[in-house]
């Protein structure tokens, strides 16, 4: 990544006040009969961040945190309810205009399940060639074939594998195929949505290493979505922590692990099993994630937060600059939360 450090300061992705609201109401007739009002789920609530060229930003959160919804909005699979996404200065819109089709060449996505992300009826070569063909990156069929072979070798498979069907490959190999497809239109930006959570650990290591190598080789920018902090630590330059659809902390990766600020971040770190057997005393993690349809008022984390006071229950926290990044917490702002132990 060092070669690209010169460009690090230009944001490739600028996300401002992004929100996504889903209508999760029952059908009209049920609502009338049961006298219920419409229900909405704020999957993503006023999220803003930037991703600089060549870096990896990771979004970490548990189920219901909105991390996959953000990923989908960033690649135009879902329309935001509010807010803007700028890709290299250009607005992202869901349409088939020429400008947008041109823009589509520049971003791609690697999905969670290597079993569902490849069409079982398509040959691997066709799967990989599809973005190239549809986006018009390459038109000559001999060149397409050659490029597919190159891509297969780039991800550690052999060019001859293109003639096979996806079911002939293991989970890890399929994820390699999915990566080859993502690279086929020569994108700058790749959204990786839990790319290894369906894989076994030893295969996960292969895929994570491959993704890092490809980033160095091709100068890719990653948005890395995961629930697994130890994977994120390995991949990310910066980390954003999501809770119930909102960002609670963004910090430099190393700093976040050394000195987590937000109580939720600390809780997540405490929940990671201690593999080094250092005898680190884990704090009891409290409670579970509340129902996102009726999130708690004020800071949504307050019912589980050991430091919550009256202000947290009523007032939504705003960004506070810290030594390591930004954090949305009244306690940190007021300085009433003890500094995190720097054991790790």
């Amino acid at each position: 990544m060092t070669e690209f450090s010169a460009q690090l300061d230009t944001p490739l992705i600028q996300v401002a006040n992004l929100s996504c609201v889903f209508d999760v109401s029952k059908p009209w007739l049920n609502r009338v009969v049961e006298r219920e009002s419409k229900q909405f789920l704020r999957a993503v609530d006023d999220v803003s961040f930037e991703i600089r060229k060549g870096e990896t930003l990771a979004l970490v959160g548990e189920s219901g945190s909105g991390k996959s919804t953000i990923a989908k909005m960033l690649v135009g699979l879902l329309e935001p309810s509010a807010g803007t996404i700028l890709f290299d200065g250009q607005p992202m819109v869901i349409d088939s205009s020429e400008r947008m089709m041109e823009l589509r060449k520049r971003f791609q996505m690697i999905f969670q399940s290597p079993y569902a992300s490849l069409n079982p009826r398509w040959k691997v070569a066709d799967v990989i060639a599809e973005p190239m063909v549809v986006l018009g990156v390459e038109k000559d069929s001999a060149k397409i074939q050659a490029r597919v072979g190159e891509l297969l070798e780039l991800v550690g498979l052999s060019a001859a594998d293109g003639a096979k069907f996806p079911h002939e490959f293991s989970g890890g190999q399929r994820q390699r195929i999915a990566i080859a497809r993502a690279l086929s239109s020569n994108p700058d930006f790749v959204v990786c949505d839990e790319p290894t959570s369906a894989l076994d650990v030893s295969v996960q290591a292969q895929i994570l290493n491959l993704m890092r190598d490809l980033q160095d080789q091709l100068g890719l920018t990653y948005l890395f979505i995961s629930h697994d902090l130890s994977v994120v630590r390995h991949m990310a330059d910066r980390i954003g922590v999501l809770y119930l659809g909102a960002l609670v902390e963004i910090a430099d990766s190393k700093e976040l692990f050394k000195a987590p600020q937000h109580p939720y971040t600390r809780m997540l770190l405490d929940a990671v099993p201690d593999l080094e057997m250092t005898g680190r005393q884990r704090k009891e993690v409290e409670g579970e994630i509340p129902n996102p349809i009726n999130p708690p008022p004020g800071c949504t984390f307050h019912p589980r937060c050991p430091f919550a006071n009256e202000r947290c229950k009523g007032e939504v926290p705003h960004w506070t600059e810290t030594r390591t990044g930004v954090v949305a917490c009244h306690g940190v702002e007021e300085g009433r939360i003890p500094a995190a132990e720097m054991v790790r």
């Binding site: 030893s202 593999l275 080094e276 790790r344």
Partner: peptide
């Protein structure tokens, strides 16, 4: 190999 392939916090 398995132990080495597990990413850890440390």
């Amino acid at each position: 190999g398995l132990m080495g392939s597990i990413p850890t916090l440390a």
